[in-house]
Structure formats: structure tokens, C-alpha cells
Amino acid sequence: MKQLMIACIFLFSNIFVTFSMGNTPEKGVNPQDTLKVYYLDEVVVRSSVKETNDLKNLPTAVSVISPRQLKDSQIESLPALSSFIPNFFIPQYGSKVSTPIYIRGIGARLGAQTVSLYVDNVPSFNPSAFDFEFQDIQRIEVLRGAQGTLYGRNAIGGIVNMYTLSPLTFQGTRLSLSGGNYGQFSVKGSNYSKLSDHLGLSVGAYYKRDDGYFTNSYRNEKVDGSENVGGRVKLEWQAKPDFKAMFFANYDYLSGGAFPYMHVDSTASRFNEPSSYDRHLFTNGLSLDWIKDGYTIHSTTGFQYLKDDMK
């Protein structure tokens, strides 16, 4: 009996010591501290400024122009943005033969450009193709500062992105007619419709003219009149929830006069030499998007044909 009592006392003593040691906090650790530290392997975050990031969270200077702003300010071409976007300027030399973009003073009138223009993700590198008539613009983004890491060549000064309305998200018909002094007349029309639940088509056309503002006193006629006509077709196909294809084609024809440099207060010039600029501009593009869990594959193919003649 005495031996059994000694064995029980010894057993309970071991249990108490074990329980006490298990609940004793480690040296230097606060038992009330709930902060936990986890050591993970290397984490790499990949994103694309072109497609996925929210522009307001980008570490760069960005200006976004909405369709409402374009309409209220009567902005119908890229040079008109010079009055609304800070550190953005497009000089006008009397014709559309050269309309380079300057951002923060960086630009080039001739040769390789330092600021590029993208329309529905298709690039334009020739400054003679920058000035064209706006039609159904969904938004315009101006990214100031070097963008060569993501956009490659011709982006040391910045990038201008333009996006047009999608026939899959917008349906209806638009028609506008305007006129003014100096023989100004403009008409635009477009139609957006769904051919099926997953296929959309948009078609648009425009015509614009004016008599000009400067008079050639030698011939007694306006010297800088212009006529501009063009059209646009866009087709979007949502083949699957994770696959989308978009094709567009633009054509723009311009026939206009030109005038020599003169005093800013003068509206007359005197010469008997031909002064005109004609331009044929055709642009098309094909975009393919695959959206998968955790990644996106985007492909863009574009072609631009420019034929102009200046006299």
C-alpha cells in the first residue's frame, strides 16, 4: 500500500511538471503578442500599363479625356488638345503635312518621333498621320514621361492612346451637322449594332470643308481652303468568355491649300505658285485577347498606308 501511494505521488508530480513546462513562455516572447511573421519565397507581381492597371494608381503623369469633355470643348482633332492638356503641344504649320506631338518640350518635327500615337492599340509613327478627324472616341489617354519600357521605340517623351467605342457595349445611331462662317460645313454619321449576341459592327463616315481664312492677293482667292472625307469600320467578336477579337479599318482623304509664313496680324499673302497638300491615309488593325486565370495574352497587328503630295 505504501509503495502504491509513493508511485501515485511520483506520477502526479511528473504530470504537473510537464504541464507547467508546456505553458511556460519562451524566453524573450510576450505571451500576449498576437503578431505572427511568415517567411515566403520570392513574390513577383507582373502587370501591364497598356491593359490592366488603373491609370489613377500609376506612378506617372496621366491625363484622360472623356467623350463628354470632347463634345463640350468641341475637340475634333488631336491639335485641339493642346489647350486642355498640361505640357502637351502640337504646332500647326498651315497644313497637316507635319503635326508632331511635344510633351514636356520633347518632340521632333522630322525623322524618328519621340512621342507616339496609338489608336485602338495600333501605333502611328509618322507625324503626317497624327492630324485626322475624330469619330466616336471612347477616351483619350496622354501619358507624360518616358514609356519605352512597355511601349518600345519612339516613346521617350510620352504616349497618346486613343480608344473608339465598342459595338458590343454601345448601340445606336449618331448624326451631327454643323456649319459656320468662312464656308465651314461638317457632317458626321455612325451606326453601332449587334449582329448577334457575340458579334458587333460599327460603320461611320464624315465630310468636312471650309473656304479658308487667308487670301492670296495675287489671285484674289482664298489660299488655305480644305476638304476632308473619310470613314471607319469596326468589328468585334466575343467568341468565348475568355477570347475576344477586334478588327478595324480607317480611311481618310484630305485635300487642302497651304500658305507661307506671314505676320500674325496679316490675312493676305501674294504669290503665284501652287500651294496644296493632298493626303491618302489608310489604317487597319487586328487585336486578339485571351484572358485566362492569372494571365492575359494580347496580340495586335496593324498596317498603315500613307500617300501624300505637297506642292
Rank of each mutant, 00 (worst) to 15 (best):
Phe16Tyr: 14
Phe84Leu: 15
Ser255Pro: 02
Asn57Glu: 11
Leu177Met: 09
Asp265Ser: 15
Phe134Gly: 07
Ile297Thr: 10
Thr215Ser: 00
Thr149Ala: 12
Ala108Val: 10
Glu273Trp: 08
Asp224Arg: 00
Asp211Ala: 14
Tyr118Pro: 02
Asn23Ala: 07
Val37Trp: 06
Lys208Glu: 03
Met310Glu: 10
Thr267Ser: 10
Ile65Ser: 04
Asp265Ile: 08
Lys194Thr: 13
Thr296Arg: 15
Ala249His: 11
Gln171Gly: 06
Asn87His: 14
Leu201Glu: 06
Asp41Glu: 13
Val64Glu: 04
Gly200Ser: 05
Ser299Trp: 08
Val264Pro: 05
Leu117Asn: 12
Arg46Thr: 11
Val45Cys: 04
Ser77Phe: 00
Pro167Asn: 06
Gly152Glu: 01
Asn181Arg: 12
Phe247Trp: 12
Pro260Thr: 07
Gly94Tyr: 01
His298Ala: 03
Phe134Asn: 08
Pro274Arg: 14
Ile15His: 01
Phe89Trp: 10
Lys56Asn: 08
Gly231Tyr: 12
Val233His: 02
Pro260Phe: 03
Gly179Met: 00
Glu221Ile: 11
Gly152Asn: 01
Tyr251Phe: 14
Arg174Asp: 01
Asn14Phe: 01
Ser82Pro: 02
Arg153Val: 03
Tyr295Met: 10
Thr24Tyr: 11
Ile159Asp: 13
Ser124Ala: 13
Arg279Lys: 13
Gly157Glu: 10
Asn121Lys: 07
Ser275Asn: 11
Gly172Asp: 12
Gln135Arg: 00
Lys27Cys: 00
Phe282Gln: 06
Val44Ile: 15
Gly257Gln: 03
Ser269Lys: 00
Val17Thr: 06
Ile90Val: 15
Ser48Gly: 11
Phe271Thr: 08
Ile140Val: 11
His263Val: 03
Asn272Val: 02
Lys311Pro: 06
Asn121Pro: 01
Tyr295Ala: 04
Phe10Asn: 09
Ile75Ser: 10
Val122Met: 09
Phe247Glu: 06
His263Met: 04
Thr215Cys: 00
Asn216Pro: 02
Arg174Cys: 00
Ser186Cys: 09
Arg153Met: 06
Gln32Cys: 01
Gln3Cys: 01
Leu150His: 01
Leu175Gln: 08
Leu281Glu: 03
Gln92His: 05
Ser186Arg: 14
Met246Trp: 00
Gly111Gln: 07
Phe247Ser: 09
Glu51Ser: 13
Gln184Glu: 15
Tyr102Ile: 01
Thr283Pro: 00
Lys292Val: 07
Leu117Tyr: 02
Asp197Gly: 14
Gly94Phe: 05
Met262Cys: 02
Gln3His: 14
Thr52Gly: 02
Gly189Glu: 05
Val203Pro: 01
Val29Ile: 14
Glu221Asn: 10
Ser13Pro: 00
Leu81Asn: 04
Thr267Met: 04
Lys2Trp: 04
Gly107Pro: 05
Ile101Ala: 09
Tyr277Thr: 00
Pro31Asp: 14
Thr60Trp: 04
Ser95Arg: 05
Gln113Phe: 00
Gly22Val: 07
Ser82Lys: 09
Gly148Thr: 10
Ala129Ile: 12
Asn220Phe: 02
Asn250Ala: 07
Gly189Pro: 04
Phe134Ile: 08
Gln113Glu: 11
Thr169Asn: 13
Gln69Phe: 14
Tyr277Gln: 03
Gly28Asp: 07
Gly22Lys: 15
Val229Glu: 11
Glu26Thr: 08
Lys56Ala: 05
